[in-house]
Amino acid sequence: MIVNIEKCMHCGACVGSCPQNAVYLNEIVLEFNEDCNRCGRCVRICPVGALKMEGKR
């Protein structure tokens, strides 16, 4: 997953929505762990469009 850090508002909407519990947010960075299965839910859910899947435009 690619995070646009200039758009990300660190709101955690993707974290709580991730069915795999694969997203982690500390004060600054959003991290995806190996449990991420690229389902894409976080991409749609992000209120500001800060996430996209690698390999997709």
Binding site: S17, R41, R44, P47, G49
Partner: peptide, 12 residues
């Protein structure tokens, strides 16, 4: 509602 969203960034 998340199930009604289609495109990234739509909420804003």
């Amino acid at each position: 509602l998340a199930s009604k969203l289609e495109k990234p960034g739509e909420v804003k």
